[in-house]
Design a protein around this nucleic acid. Structure first.
Lengths: 149, 149
DNA sequence: ACAATGGGGACTGCTTTGGTCCCCTATGCG
DNA sequence: CGCATAGGGGACCAAAGCAGTCCCCATTGT
């Protein structure tokens, strides 16, 4: 459920890789090799991430890519938002054309709420944490109210 | 980003509708009409939700559907998990075949963390809240740590 | 100049999804 | 007893989204 695109997954991998060497400039080929993804694919990602302002690029013969900000200042939310469209779990949360029957539809407000919770979850994990060992991470469970899966 | 399936969206609508009349049995046709979704589609949903144990069904001429538990005991997570596969944001979090290069891939642990946060977010919203007016809802922001979109 | 490197799209094949339909089973009522 | 109503299960098809590749242009150091 709630799958994110493969590309976005790659994107996080790439960004995490770059977060381990925040100050060294790396070419697309180097990144592709390091992350085990085909060069054209990783190239596409790097372009998108650059256009969104998460990466800095230098063109020309000694060019390459570098993080635009410190790893601690880039969250997974930033990466996901850069590679997938604008946020919104449901269809009608972004469509200009409202649901044919928003009469009984008091849900959008609730979906926004849920979206907000997910947003916060993604924003809470930054690249420096992603590149750190797992056990250093922990998370505040928001509020597990009544439910029994 | 992070879109959930249209079917799942419908599913939440249907379940929310049923949560407003927890004790009355309703036929598929009635539900379809009330929710403004085509009958075959809603039928498919109801079957799936029944198979998962979220709904009780009665067959025969006076049959119909009803919530299997109290609205407060059914969360959005339950509905989403029933209609989409098992949880997992990324590809390899569920695939038996590991990534070709899980060498530098210390990410699964982190993805699990994020998935957990999203899970909690969805589990925190129950059907009785979904059927209530929006302003009655509020949410504990988990921890908006360093990030600046 | 030339070689290396990023930039921006266009294009395509595939997988997933949404949605419909058909036939079977169960149950109440005339 | 049989017919009408309701759900159960699954096959099936069309459309959309996505992943992935490729091509050509712009930039810059040697």
């Amino acid at each position: 459920m709630l799958r994110i695109g493969k590309m976005t997954d790659y994107g996080v991998v790439v960004m995490t890789h770059l977060a381990r060497h925040p100050d060294t400039m790396q070419t697309g080929a180097q990144i592709a090799a390091a992350c085990g993804v085909a060069l054209p694919t990783v190239s596409k990602l790097l372009k998108a991430l650059t256009r969104t302002g998460l990466l800095q690029s230098v063109r020309g013969v000694a060019g390459g890519y570098r993080l635009a900000r410190a790893p601690a200042a880039i969250s997974v939310l930033d990466v996901v938002a850069a590679l997938e469209g604008p946020f919104g779990l449901t269809e009608c949360s972004r469509a200009a054309t409202a649901c044919p029957q928003q009469a009984g539809c008091s849900l959008p407000g609730h979906w926004d709420l849920i979206s907000g919770a997910v947003r916060s979850a993604l924003r809470g994990v930054t690249l420096d944490r992603m590149s750190a060992p797992v056990h250093r991470l922990h998370w505040h469970e928001p509020r597990p109210s009544a439910a029994a899966p």
